[in-house]
């Protein structure tokens, strides 16, 4: 009899083999004690030991199968089902992640010959106060704004290539977090004590807009634009393209900022794309799509 090409057949065959194995073990238990041939006894002892292993493996299989099903149930809602089929896992787009994305890009830039500078040299530019000030001035952004406040006040604008996702206003070990439109996010960051009563700087909108402008000209998907209180003014402290601390927020907020990271990553590629640096290479130049030869190229 030939076996048809049915994907379920191996499963059925496997089940039949399992049942055969169970029957064999049953028969074997009746035989072991009856033979007096030492060679047969040895073979049967070895067989019995292996059957014991089969039983243990069967028990482990049962436990593992239950755990796998539990995980498939956990993943099911991602696709609107009770259970995530194994073959479907690879077809999902996954979800964006803010901290994941930022850390990935940091790891990549730290592989540069000068890890502080990164491949694009941005880290070196912003490690130099004069170079930073030249950059800021060149974009018509003020380095200071008049805004009296507590001596240890700080504002960190988390920006994604022109888009502000998070504004952190802190005094000492307390902070308030707002989204890019200025909406208070509440207590979203376990590492900092949330203080809903903290006064916001009067110039916060201007600082946020200035930070967005600066971030749009940094060749990274994400940058922290940091301001600090200096007397009656808020002063641009630094642009940090390789921050040691990245805010760990609630899952909901990490996902929201993850979407902005995806956009920031795409925007980072606009510069080389417009320069033609992403074109496919062929000996002697770049690949030239020829509509006459290559009909079928995506519109």
């Amino acid at each position: 009899m030939t076996v048809p090409d049915d994907p379920k057949v191996p499963v059925v065959l496997e089940r039949i083999r399992d049942l055969q194995g169970s029957l064999n073990r049953l028969h074997q238990r009746g035989r072991v004690a009856t033979t007096r041939d030492p060679k047969i006894r040895k073979l049967e002892q070895r067989t019995a030991a292996l059957q014991h292993e089969v039983a243990e493996l069967d028990a482990e299989k049962t436990t593992l199968t239950a755990r796998r099903r539990e995980l498939q149930r956990t993943l099911g809602p991602l696709i609107g089902k009770d259970l995530m089929p194994l073959a479907r896992v690879e077809k999902t787009n996954g979800v964006p992640g803010f901290v994941w994305g930022v850390r990935m890009m940091q790891r990549i830039h730290r592989k540069a010959p000068d890890p502080v500078a990164g491949f694009d040299g941005a880290g070196r530019v912003f490690a130099d106060r004069d170079a930073t000030e030249r950059f800021v001035r060149s974009h018509g952004v003020p380095l200071t704004v008049d805004d009296p406040g507590p001596a240890d006040r700080r504002v960190v604008v988390h920006a994604f290539h022109g888009l502000v996702g998070l504004v952190e206003v802190g005094v000492g070990d307390t902070a308030r977090h707002l989204d890019g439109d200025g909406a208070d996010l509440g207590d979203v960051r376990p590492a900092l004590r949330h203080d809903a009563g903290l006064d916001l700087p009067a110039t916060l909108t201007a600082l946020t807009e200035a930070s967005a402008t600066l971030s749009a000209h940094v060749s990274r998907p994400y940058v922290q634009v940091c301001w600090r209180q200096d007397g009656d003014r808020l002063v641009l402290d630094r642009l940090d393209v390789d921050p040691e601390r990245v805010p760990v927020l609630t899952e909901e907020q990490d996902l929201r900022l993850g979407h902005l990271f995806d956009t920031g990553h795409a925007r980072m590629l606009v510069q080389p794309y417009r320069a033609g640096a992403l074109e496919n290479r062929v000996p002697g130049g770049v690949f030239d799509p020829d509509p006459a030869l290559d009909r079928g190229v995506q519109a």
């Binding site: 990549i108 830039h109 592989k111 540069a112 491949f119 694009d120 040299g121 941005a122 530019v125 000030e133 030249r134 950059f135 001035r137 060149s138 974009h139 018509g140 952004v141 003020p142 380095l143 000209h217 940094v218 060749s219 980072m268 510069q271 080389p272 320069a275 033609g276 640096a277």
Partner: peptide
């Protein structure tokens, strides 16, 4: 990392300065 190194070497990936010359 290799790709970014190549893009930077071709001056296609860098911090961009604006056109304002004066300190506002």
């Amino acid at each position: 990392a290799r790709l970014l190194a190549d893009l930077a070497a071709e001056d296609a990936l860098h911090v961009t300065y604006g056109e304002h010359g004066d300190d506002p």
